[in-house]
Design a protein around this nucleic acid. Sequence first.
RNA 1: GAAGCAGAUCGCCUUAUCGCUUUUUAUUUUGAAUUAUAUUCAGAAAUAUAAAGAGGAAAGUCCGGACACCAUAGUGUAGCAUAGUGGCUAACAGCCAUCAAUCGUAAGGUUAGGAAAAGUGCAACAGAAAGUAUGUACAGGUAAUGCUGUAGUGAAAUCAGGUAAACUCUAUGCGGUGCAAUGCCAUGUAAACUAGUGCUCCAUUGGAAAAGUGUACACGCACGAUGCUAGAGGGUAGGCAGCUAAAGGCUAUUGGUAACAAUAGUUGUAGAUAAAUGAUAAGGGCUUUUAAAAGUACAAAAUCCGGCUUAUAGAUCUGCUUUUUUU
Length: 121
Amino acid sequence: MDLTYNKTEKLKRQKTINKLFSEGKSVSAYPLQLIYMIEDNKRKVGVSVSKRKFKKAVERIRIKRLLREGYRLNKSILINNKLDHYTLMIIYVGKEMPDFKTIDLKIKGILKKLIQTLKAN
RNA sequence: GAAGCAGAUCGCCUUAUCGCUUUUUAUUUUGAAUUAUAUUCAGAAAUAUAAAGAGGAAAGUCCGGACACCAUAGUGUAGCAUAGUGGCUAACAGCCAUCAAUCGUAAGGUUAGGAAAAGUGCAACAGAAAGUAUGUACAGGUAAUGCUGUAGUGAAAUCAGGUAAACUCUAUGCGGUGCAAUGCCAUGUAAACUAGUGCUCCAUUGGAAAAGUGUACACGCACGAUGCUAGAGGGUAGGCAGCUAAAGGCUAUUGGUAACAAUAGUUGUAGAUAAAUGAUAAGGGCUUUUAAAAGUACAAAAUCCGGCUUAUAGAUCUGCUUUUUUU
């Protein structure tokens, strides 16, 4: 089972990020929002937290780490459903500091929701 | 013992499993070159292994430098900053010593502490009057006059003082822009297109120079047609270097009241870039509490250093002061 999340899998290019925000579709399940795009033949995933909602850098870094960890442990949900090329941006839109258990749960939820919406189309 | 003053240090730990970033070594794959099928080279990827991986403030971005580019950064004006005296430093608005004022019983704390005989402005109450000033009473004096003295008000009353966290003056310092600096590679018809403006003079492989451009302004200086200004539409916004060894840390000795300096020894410590340093589980510290249980702060590098300021649960150490008790 693949539990890695290294440099090559990170969403880095400014261009693709802009494209994702302008053309991608979104699925939301509070306190998370997922913007996705099924185009590239590689997996690219980024995480984000609004600076407005969390002013301190410590809090933002903490949430990003939790989001990354949640994706790393649960990305098998996507791969087991024969989905291995995608571009994702996971955004935390909540207003309070989460702990890992809720993040883990919500990530699982939103990834399953993504698969359902894709199958429906 | 209690209350307090000054200074310094630390600021969670261990194990297991799953991960992240950088680097070392090994193997495999791939690429390039060639004397051509085996060597060499350096790069990339994967796997394994080992090592390292946020702070005392990393913060605020408030000062000062290093470094880079703009001209070898010049002169004057403007502007800004600093302000007892002496010293330290690469430098400073920092630090040390000391004087004065002031607060505290004291240890100690605090201070925008230069100049009012250059000029301008401002000033409560009292008082006739506070600078284009001259009233009353008494006394003196004159040709005459508040001309002179005393009384009275006030901090200050006629060659006066106060105020410069008011202008000002004096002394000293400061050129500008910041690592998104800057250089290289790759990509790109990119010195592209349209409009406006400019395209000079002498001369002939050269020289001079207008407009213009370069810094707050002026001068000066440099560049000066591959120009300048505006518009529309597009491309790129990726990689490498800069990038971490530093006015470094620690210890000892010497000089100095000290800040600090010199010498010797020792040590070798993050380098990311939508931004690594994490997640989970178990256990242990520490604080509150009979226990259960709860709490375990503030706050995360972004070119690098020296400061200042602000935030901070809790813990430790050193020196000193006052007071009480005991011996």
